[in-house]
Amino acid sequence: MRKMLRLTFVIAIFILTLPQLCFSQSPPQSYLIGNGDILEIVTWKEPDFSREEIIVRLDGNISFPLLDDVMAAGKTPTQLKLDIQAGLKEFVAEPHVTVTVRSAASKRFYILGEVVNTGEYPLTKNLTVLQAFTLAGGFTEWASKKEIILFRRNQGKETVIRIDYKDIVKGKDFSQNVEIKADDTIVVP
């Protein structure tokens, strides 16, 4: 019986988010590298200037041979590539660098309270609040689905977004099915 309820919950979430997925897709944004991300940097025909795993430190820098500290956080992989190529021109005639994000560890969100699996989750794609609840295994029987709070930090300011799950599911207010951003915290009382 419990498995059937969970399957029904997952199907309902999919059906409810399908219109949003089909009609309200925003254009993809360039990924910004963050603290904790793991990068692979390959310099063509220069194995001494290639690294399989470089972690972006808490200060936003990476350590790279002969260049010392290079600021990576807040840049796209293409911007970082250009910075490394410019720095390597002193040592390599025509450096061709590729920067790949191997693990986007800096992009996480959190779910607390009355969900089956509280915790930290990777933000590996565009997710909505309903999809986040699915990742967390759904609600416990004590969850207050009308008083969910999403805390979002944007440019140093804390924003509170109130979510009424029942209004979303009943089709009354799909605008509450907001897209999750990095470092969002969802609290289900």
Rank of each mutant, 00 (worst) to 15 (best):
R153A: 09
L5Q: 14
G156Q: 03
E141P: 03
M71Q: 15
L112S: 08
I180V: 06
G87C: 05
K145W: 07
D183L: 11
F91D: 01
G137I: 08
L16Y: 10
G156L: 01
V169A: 08
R2H: 12
G119I: 03
R108F: 02
I62L: 05
D83E: 13
K181T: 03
S63K: 12
F49S: 04
N35I: 12
K3Y: 13
K3W: 10
Q155E: 14
P65A: 10
D37G: 02
G36E: 00
R152M: 06
L130N: 00
F91N: 04
S26A: 12
E147I: 02
S24E: 14
L130A: 07
V92T: 05
D69H: 13
T134D: 14
N177H: 09
N126Q: 14
F139A: 10
M71F: 06
I11G: 04
L32P: 00
F49Q: 01
Y165P: 02
P95Y: 00
T134H: 13
K3D: 15
V10G: 08
V56E: 02
V160N: 12
Q29D: 08
L112R: 06
K146V: 02
E53I: 08
F109K: 04
K75G: 00
P47V: 00
Q155Y: 14
G138R: 07
C22E: 13
I54Q: 06
K157C: 06
L150W: 02
V187G: 09
K125F: 05
Y110M: 07
Q29W: 05
R102K: 15
L112H: 06
R51E: 14
E46R: 06
S63Q: 12
Y110V: 10
S106W: 03
G119R: 05
L18W: 11
P189T: 03
L130E: 04
G34M: 08
V188Y: 04
L66R: 04
T43E: 01
K181V: 01
T124S: 10
K125Y: 10
Y31E: 03
W44Q: 13
S175C: 07
I33R: 00
A12Y: 09
V101K: 01
F91W: 10
N126P: 10
I168L: 04
L7T: 11
E114Y: 08
A132H: 03
K166Y: 09
V101A: 07
A182G: 08
W142F: 15
L80W: 07
F174L: 15
L7Q: 12
I54R: 05
L39M: 08
E52H: 13
R108H: 05
I33Y: 04
A132L: 05
L18K: 09
I161K: 11
S175N: 10
R6T: 14
P28D: 06
Q25Y: 12
K170S: 15
I149Q: 10
I15V: 15
D59E: 06
E90V: 08
L135C: 00
Q176R: 02
S63D: 12
A182P: 01
K172M: 09
T17C: 11
K145E: 10
E158F: 06
V101P: 03
S50D: 09
S24R: 15
L32C: 00
F109H: 05
N177F: 03
G171K: 09
S175F: 11
G156W: 00
C22I: 15
D48A: 09
T98I: 11
V188T: 04
P27I: 10
A93E: 13
Q79L: 10
K3L: 14
I33Q: 08
K170D: 13
